[in-house]
């Protein structure tokens, strides 16, 4: 029995050594692992990041970047197993794409000091943990201004998931944008209580529209359901978040605040090449181009030139620091 256990332990050590050697041989190559809460095709948060990582891979070359993806790991317990496995397989950069992964990273990261970990939305960067943090309120402010200018009923509906994280930032910024140009417009915020219930989101959007809203917005992957519901009613526009969602409703999705995940991933890769494995708090903002307002070319005529100019001006003011979009305290 004792002999057997010695044998097993030595085998384990051997295999660990072997995998370590294998890791060294591939030193030229950067290996990126991605942990996603939903799926690579959710047309929002997870798909946005997937496309960002793929874009980095395309730019640096397939032979220079290896990408591995694990989906549907919304709850941190299952994600932790995946993160730990990627780390022990010698991945260089492990991106856990959600706020909920903060505590598991804090637990695992110290054991793999050479590996870089990243998570977001978040701010607690550590030795080898990057935290990225989209300033969702900034683009939301601009979209709020747009909504306030375009609404004819003075009612704007928000289809929210769970009142937390990005949704709070987005809604808070959006309301400020609306109030800044049209204090009479009413922003009605409602939540479905879930991130992924697209049928409920659709129903909530319908209720908003029945109650008079003609401009709608919202966050999380469930909004695709709400967008489709809006597409049934001519004259109603949707302002999106996360990424350009106009493909599912070309005549309804007017704009979107799109996150440029590619730049974030590229930045982390650069930091690593400079020998920095973590400790940075990466902000996606209008100023650094991490956030963009994408206008659906199909519908660009809907936005009057003066409104567009006003929004451009506000964008400049935010970038210059003249205009600060508040966050809830």
């Amino acid at each position: 029995m004792k002999k057997l256990s010695i044998l097993i332990v030595s085998l384990l050590i051997l295999s660990a050594l072997l995998s370590a050697c294998a890791g060294q041989q591939q030193a030229q190559k950067i290996r990126i692992a991605l942990i996603l809460p939903s799926t690579v095709d959710d047309l929002s948060w997870s798909q946005g990041m997937t496309e960002g990582v793929k874009a980095v891979q395309a730019e640096l070359g397939e032979d220079k970047v290896e990408v591995a993806i694990s989906e549907r790991l919304g709850n941190p317990t299952d994600a932790a197993a995946a993160i730990r496995q990627y780390a022990s397989q010698g991945f260089d950069l492990i991106i856990a794409h959600g706020s909920q992964y903060q505590s598991v990273l804090e637990e695992i990261a110290p054991e793999f000091p050479k590996t870089s970990f990243a998570y977001g939305t978040g701010f607690q960067a550590h030795d080898n943990i990057f935290a990225y943090d989209p300033q969702a309120q900034e683009g939301a402010y601009l979209q709020g201004m747009l909504a306030a200018k375009l609404t004819k009923t003075n009612i704007i509906g928000v289809v929210g998931p769970i009142e937390a994280g990005d949704a709070i930032k987005y809604n808070y910024g959006f309301e400020q944008g609306v109030k800044a140009v049209n204090p009479d417009a009413e922003v009605r915020i409602a939540y479905t209580g879930s991130f992924g219930d697209i049928a409920k989101a659709a129903e909530l959007a319908k209720a908003h529209m029945d109650a008079g809203a003609d401009i709608l917005t919202g966050t999380a992957q469930q909004t695709v359901g709400a967008i489709r519901a809006c597409a049934e009613r001519p004259g109603v526009y949707w302002l999106g978040n996360d990424m350009d969602q106009s493909s599912i409703a070309p005549n309804t999705v007017l704009t979107a605040q799109a996150y440029d995940w590619k730049s974030v991933v590229m930045q982390m890769v650069k930091f690593r090449q400079e020998g920095k494995v973590g400790g940075e708090h990466l902000v996606l903002s209008l100023a650094n181009g991490g956030l963009n307002i994408v206008v659906n070319p199909n519908l660009s005529s809907v936005i009057p030139a003066d409104v567009m100019a006003m929004i451009e001006q506000a964008k400049k003011d935010i970038i210059d620091g003249k205009l600060v979009v508040e966050l809830p305290k």
Binding site: R72, G196, A199, K200, G225, R228
Partner: peptide
């Protein structure tokens, strides 16, 4: 009904516990 009569689309976990 959820895909053809309600949301006119399909996405992961559309039934959501119904």
């Amino acid at each position: 009904f959820l895909t053809l009569g309600h949301t006119n689309m399909y996405a992961d976990n559309i039934s959501a516990g119904r």
